[in-house]
């Protein structure tokens, strides 16, 4: 072995440094990514929705008779002391409509676009800083919002339309609830919201008896929500305390008396010419039940919601204002 085969000191140091650095990097990387425990069972940070009911005012209910939705709506709020008593300047309002099906508005399976646009306008007139309209429909969301006319109506009136996207859902637990425990709920649109309005049509519903403002909150549920049909009255009861709206608007101008909740034919509708606005969803739905000529016995979810503290089925106790519009 001649001296030319020997590595020079300088070379040795350089190569030793190189090897050392590489070793350090590899070891450092290994330590950085070291995971001694492996995957843990998921920890669910369940969120909850704030109470949006308006504090400091007593429960109110207005029943308007008339065929014109816009006029009825204006008259109702006039009788209740104006939209200003519900929506304050700078309020951020979320309107939960029923846009479950991709059917035209005339068929009454979804919230009527005229009501949506008029409510949005009135909110903005009262100084609302932001109005959004949302739902997580059963049919294709985009088709639903376009075909029902709700999307265009809301946008035209100045509201934002929020379609469901996977990021909007978070696991939610209703206190003391049996069904809504860590269940994905569309809470995204509620971010920064100060007032919530529920808007639904009066519809027949074969499983629950009727679909009105309480059943409408079903549309906030995500995941495999269909399984809750196994206990429909309890899920509506839990929904009634999961979300406490500022007010609800129930459209009973043309009630879907059969073949609900999809309808699909004009013969499924009956003119009942009634619009109900109130701060107690249970009372509002109880009025709606009378439009469908259904007794409380046929709609167990109403008394269950009352028992949970969501409102009262005895709507006469709220001294409803009855007026005729148009």
């Amino acid at each position: 072995m001649g001296p030319e085969d020997l590595i020079s000191r300088r070379n040795f140091l350089a190569r030793a440094l190189q090897a050392g650095l590489t070793g350090t990097l590899v070891a450092g990387g290994g330590i950085l990514f070291y995971d001694p425990d492996g995957p843990m069972p998921p920890v669910v940070q369940a969120v909850s929705l704030p109470d949006f009911s308006i504090s400091g005012i007593k429960k109110q209910l207005c029943i308007v008779h008339g065929p014109d939705r816009k006029k009825s709506l204006r008259s109702a709020f006039q009788a209740l002391g104006g939209m200003e008593s519900f929506i304050r300047p700078k309020d951020r309002v979320l309107i939960k409509v029923n846009a479950a099906f991709a059917t035209p508005p005339q068929l009454g399976a979804t919230t009527h676009p005229e009501l949506v646009s008029e409510t949005v306008r009135m909110c903005i007139e009262s100084g609302a800083a932001y109005v959004a309209v949302t739902d997580n429909p059963i049919n294709d969301p985009q088709s639903c919002f376009e075909l029902t006319g709700i999307g265009p109506a809301a946008r035209q009136a100045g509201a934002r339309v929020i379609l469901p996207d996977p990021g909007a859902f978070a696991p939610l637990t209703v206190p003391n609830a049996r069904l809504i425990r860590n269940w994905p709920v569309m809470v995204g649109p509620f971010e920064g919201i100060t007032r919530v309005i529920g808007m639904a049509p009066v519809k027949d519903h074969h499983r629950s008896g009727a679909s009105m403002t309480l059943k409408n909150w079903y549309g906030l549920l995500g995941g495999r929500r269909n399984i809750f049909h196994q206990d429909i009255h309890t899920i509506i009861q839990e929904l009634s305390i999961m979300i406490r709206p500022s007010l609800v608007i129930l459209d009973g101008v043309a009630a879907m008396v059969r073949n609900g909740p999809t309808g699909g034919s004009f013969s499924d509708l009956r003119r009942t010419d009634t619009l109900i606005v109130g701060t107690d969803p249970v009372a509002v739905d109880a009025v709606g039940a009378s439009l469908l000529q259904r007794s409380l016995d046929q709609l167990p979810f109403l008394e269950k919601a009352e028992a949970a503290g969501a409102g009262t089925v005895n709507y006469e106790s709220l001294n409803p204002i009855r007026i005729t519009a148009g």
Binding site: I138, R207, N226, N259, P261, G264, S265
Partner: peptide
């Protein structure tokens, strides 16, 4: 178990 989601979502009229 009660269910009838299929009946509910059937879009034709009459269902």
């Amino acid at each position: 178990r009660p269910c009838i989601v299929c009946q509910e979502t059937c879009p034709v009229s009459p269902k």
